[in-house]
Amino acid sequence: MAAAPFKQYRSPESSQEVVELLTRYGEAAVLLAGGTFLHGLAARGLMSKMEALISLQKAGLDYVKPQGGSLTIGAMATFRELLDASPVKGRPELGAIADALEYPPPQILNAATVGGSTASAYPLFDLPVALIALGGAVVAQGPGGRREIKLEQFFLDYFRHALGKGEFLAEVIVPKLPDRSASAFLKLETNANDLALLNVGVRVTIDEEGLCRGAVVAFGGGIGGVPVRAATCETYLEGSRLSAKLLDESAQAVTHDVHPISDHRASARYRATAAKVLARRALIRALARLGLEFG
C-alpha cells in the first residue's frame, strides 16, 4: 500500500535548511533518510497525514571520517558505506560495528542509514546497541545550534528520543577508544531477515598485564523501550584478570540489570537465559580480536 500522503516533498541542500524546514513545519513534517523504516510504518497504516516529507538526501550528510582517533559518521551514511569505510575495516575496537552490519540483508545495507537507524529509537535495531558499546554519541543540530547527546541519554522509550523541536540527528560520533580495546556484537534472530530477539554489544579494554581496564556490555532487542547496559557485569569485569571462568561469571551477572520482556517471539525467561550466553560469547569474540583466546 502507498505511504501516508504527504502534501509536499522537500529536499533541503544543507543542514541549516533542514533546521529551517523543521522549524517551519513543526510536527507536520517527517524526515526521510533511507526510508526503510518509514515506509514500513506507512505501509502498515501507522502514519498519520503530514504536510511535508523532508528528505535528507541532499543535505551533505553521507560521510564517514576519522577525526583524531574518533570517528564521525554523517547521518545519511548508509550501512554499506559505514561497513566499507577504511577507518572501520579491520579495527578491533570497531569490531562491534562490523559485526552488527553483518546481519541486515544487502538491500537494507544499501539503503538504511546510520541516522535513520538511530533516530528510529527502536530498541530492536542492531547498530545503536553496537554504538552504545563504543560509547557513541549523536550530534543534534537545531535552531539553537549543535549539541552532543550520549546515545544512552538519546533513547527515551520506544520510538522516543531526546531530539527537541526543530532538531535533527546530524551525525554520530564514536570517541577515540583507549589502546588495547576491542568490541564485538552478537544477535539472536530466527532467520537472516529478522529484528533482534535479543542483541548485545560489548567493548573491553585491557592493560599490558592483561587486566580489564574498562568494559561496556549493552543489550537491545526484547529488553524494553531502550537499550540497557549491564552495569553489574561491567563492574565485575573491570580491574579483573581475565579468564574463561571470569567471563562466565561476569556474564551470569547480566541478569541483575537486564530485564527482558515477553512477547509473541520469546518469553522473558528465555531472553534472560540467552542474555548470559550472548554476553559471554560476545566478550570472547571481542577478546579474540586482541589475540586472547578464551572460547
Binding site: 514500513g40 502498515r44 530466527t190 532467520n191 537472516a192 531477515n193 529478522d194 529484528l195 509473541h264 517471539r265
Partner: peptide, 16 residues
Amino acid sequence: CLAGDFLNYKIPTAIE
C-alpha cells in the same frame, strides 16, 4: 494477528 508480515512471520532464507 501479530505475525502479519515477514519481519514477524519467519520462513527459512537461503542462510538457514
